[in-house]
Design a protein around this nucleic acid. Structure first.
Length: 277
DNA sequence: CCTCATTCCTGCGGGC
DNA sequence: TGCCCGCAGGAATGAG
């Protein structure tokens, strides 16, 4: 499930394989995958054909490819989206929705997405920062991320602390897995009121968020199945480093108490009932 | 403005 | 064996 570390792993792959190359053609076989590009498939193709990819950028779970036109191809992987770099002769993936060919007739870029929650769009003038993601907060691994602003926002909110971690307008890049992991490390229960967390505890939680994201990037992300892969179709290994997520009934690695699972925000939360208060 | 539930989607696995 | 149903969940949307 692509959260910040998984998207970063994909970005690094794209940086290696796609930057500097010129798009020769784009084939869109599933309109839902470009639903955020309001002007439609033909407009999308027109804007990217003949353009050269000049870099790769990411904020939170969004990534974008600046083009030499000043526009950018912006992408979100959703639940199951993959950006794969494949030989032209490789057979079509079952859920292949968008294919980019390059003028050098080398490896193709393919957007594959089983559940179609993800998608691509062209952001006009978005090379530096697409306006489509301007409403998203900076992610905690950006140098310009300001801890104090997040801590203040946490205090101002009247909601559960896990909900705040998942709120991309407060802090971007954190999804269900890393939220549970950071809360476990900080020994805080996710349903605690965000404005009742002490300032030192909130700072510790933020530090754990940063740590767990960084550690997962080193491992190439977390995956439980073939749905999250890097641009070469390979899975990450961070699932070995998890202490809470998906471990219902397993002994907490700190205190041995079985990890509990509960429904929260229409999804599962995993936590240690003893050492998370 | 703020908070929160709902909706989108498909493959898989459990239960009967 | 086969079918049905629940589950996985990021972000946009709209209700209250």
């Amino acid at each position: 499930m692509p959260e910040l570390p998984e998207v970063e792993t994909v970005r690094v792959g794209l940086d290696k394989w796609v930057v500097g190359r010129t798009i020769a053609a784009v084939e869109i076989s599933h309109p839902r995958s470009i639903r955020r590009h309001i002007a439609g498939a033909r407009d999308f193709a027109q804007l990217v054909t003949g353009r050269t990819v000049t870099g790769t950028r990411r904020r939170g779970k969004f990534l974008w490819l600046p083009l030499d036109s000043g526009d950018a191809i912006i992408g979100h992987l959703g639940m199951s989206g993959q950006l794969l770099v494949q030989p032209m002769a490789a057979p079509d993936e079952k859920h292949l929705h968008i294919r980019f060919d390059f003028t050098d007739k080398g490896l193709q870029l393919r957007f594959v997405d089983q559940r179609t929650f993800g998608g691509l769009a062209v952001s006009i003038g978005g090379a530096e920062l697409p306006k489509e993601i301007a409403h998203i907060a900076k992610d905690p691994l950006e140098e310009s991320f300001v801890d104090k602003e997040f801590l203040a926002a946490l205090r101002k909110k009247r909601t559960a602390v896990k909900r705040a971690l998942l709120d991309q307008k407060l802090i971007s890049g954190v999804g269900n897995i890393y939220a549970d992991e950071a809360l476990w490390r900080a020994r805080i229960r996710g349903d605690r009121a965000s404005d009742e967390i002490s300032r030192p505890a909130a700072q510790r939680l933020l530090n754990h968020v940063k740590d767990v994201l960084r550690e997962a990037i080193v491992e190439g992300g977390t995956s439980f199945d073939a749905l999250y892969v890097n641009v070469n179709g390979e899975s990450g290994y961070f699932d070995r480093g998890l202490n809470a997520y998906g471990l219902e009934g397993e002994p907490c690695s700190r205190c041995g108490t079985p990890i509990k699972r509960s429904a929260f925000m229409n999804r599962s939360s995993f936590f240690c009932p003893r050492c998370q208060r």
